[in-house]
Simulated scan of single mutants.
Amino acid sequence: MAEQKKSRVGIDIGGTSIKAGLISHDGEMISHRETPTPEDPNNGMDKINALITDWLDDSEDMIGVAAPGPMDLAKGIFLDPPNLKGWHDFPFVREFEEKNGKVCLFENDANAAAVGEYYAGAGQDARSMVYITISTGIGAGIVLNGQLLSGAQFSAGEVGNMIISGDGPKQVGLNIGSWEALASGTAIKKKVLDVYQSDGGAKELITKVGENESDAVHIFNDWIAHLAAGIANLVHVINPEMIVLGGGVMQGKDAILPKLIPAVEERVYVSLRDSIQIQPAQLGTKAGVVGASYLPVVKRI
């Protein structure tokens, strides 16, 4: 009888919660656990250990961990992620490996989500794929012929700072006219707040668009144009087989995609229009955990 393959463990550290999953080799979630993210990283390590300890004997020797950047992947440390302020400069990989006796593969959360969608989600049938998360900010993970594009300084996929306009709001750490400043969930929330004095964000905007409220339609169309411009840039630079869209804003995909797809097609070469596949992500909040579990098998560029 063939020896049964061990399952994989994936961990996703977020500003609000730490998620852990025991994942089969075909990407199915066997077990899932979650705990609030503490401010103190040493406490965080204890919480992670409590989540996964009883999985370790029967899991692979390498464990993937997804987390928000910036991070130094070569040294395995957090740098200064804004939503994990207490974790700045924390030597995560060293501490994890000392506590658990397993090899830790540390990765940016957008890249990990891209790996998850590529192996077990919307991108399973694609050879090359760009995963874009549209949420508080905008980030991306790029998979080319089954390999994750990391970049020389591990910064590939930082598409939020891509300039798509000569004008726009100024935000700390971002270029004026950056994609994130104009097309993120935060950008929508600011517009809705300015016009309606409400913090309902993308959900409220889409509701008002459905009611054909004129200001909402104007805001939505401008946002679609900005989002389409950034996607068109990625299509021209990378020419992926598929674009996969995730993040909280894409909960409104039924209203967004019918407008977004033709807007992207208008902005790319005619020869590319018939080949563009734009799909919603399939894994939802599980993408980081599932993707982290696949980090031991994905190759990097």
Results as ranks from 00 to 15, higher is better:
residue 146 G to D: 13
residue 233 N to I: 13
residue 124 Q to K: 15
residue 222 D to P: 01
residue 60 E to H: 12
residue 161 N to A: 04
residue 235 V to T: 14
residue 201 G to P: 04
residue 131 Y to W: 11
residue 98 E to Q: 15
residue 250 M to I: 12
residue 87 W to E: 11
residue 37 T to D: 02
residue 130 V to Q: 08
residue 95 E to D: 05
residue 36 P to L: 08
residue 69 G to F: 03
residue 200 G to I: 13
residue 152 A to K: 14
residue 46 D to I: 12
residue 134 I to N: 00
residue 187 A to S: 13
residue 245 L to M: 13
residue 148 L to N: 04
residue 25 H to Y: 09
residue 120 A to T: 11
residue 77 I to W: 00
residue 82 P to T: 03
residue 9 V to S: 05
residue 224 I to C: 08
residue 89 D to V: 01
residue 159 V to W: 00
residue 186 T to A: 04
residue 169 P to H: 00
residue 202 A to W: 00
residue 134 I to C: 04
residue 21 G to Q: 01
residue 261 I to H: 02
residue 149 L to V: 13
residue 57 D to H: 12
residue 11 I to D: 05
residue 142 I to P: 05
residue 29 M to I: 14
residue 119 Y to T: 09
residue 249 V to P: 08
residue 239 N to E: 13
residue 96 F to T: 06
residue 50 A to S: 14
residue 94 R to Y: 09
residue 4 Q to H: 08
residue 122 A to E: 08
residue 99 K to P: 11
residue 274 D to M: 11
residue 301 I to Q: 07
residue 48 I to A: 05
residue 296 P to H: 07
residue 53 T to A: 11
residue 180 E to C: 06
residue 240 P to T: 07
residue 83 N to D: 03
residue 285 T to G: 11
residue 142 I to Q: 10
residue 48 I to F: 01
residue 71 M to E: 04
residue 170 K to V: 10
residue 239 N to Y: 07
residue 83 N to V: 08
residue 202 A to K: 00
residue 263 A to L: 03
residue 240 P to G: 01
residue 94 R to A: 14
residue 94 R to N: 15
residue 255 A to S: 15
residue 9 V to C: 08
residue 293 S to C: 06
residue 151 G to V: 09
residue 270 V to Y: 15
residue 64 G to D: 06
residue 36 P to V: 08
residue 203 K to N: 07
residue 259 K to Q: 14
residue 150 S to C: 15
residue 230 G to F: 02
residue 289 V to W: 11
residue 301 I to K: 14
residue 232 A to V: 06
residue 268 V to Y: 14
residue 198 S to Q: 06
residue 76 G to Y: 08
residue 122 A to I: 02
residue 17 S to L: 02
residue 284 G to S: 02
residue 141 G to R: 03
residue 187 A to Q: 06
residue 301 I to T: 14
residue 4 Q to I: 14
residue 219 I to P: 04
residue 11 I to P: 00
residue 29 M to F: 02
residue 183 A to R: 04
residue 254 D to H: 12
residue 84 L to K: 02
residue 271 S to F: 12
residue 231 I to T: 05
residue 266 E to L: 14
residue 260 L to T: 07
residue 107 E to R: 10
residue 193 L to G: 02
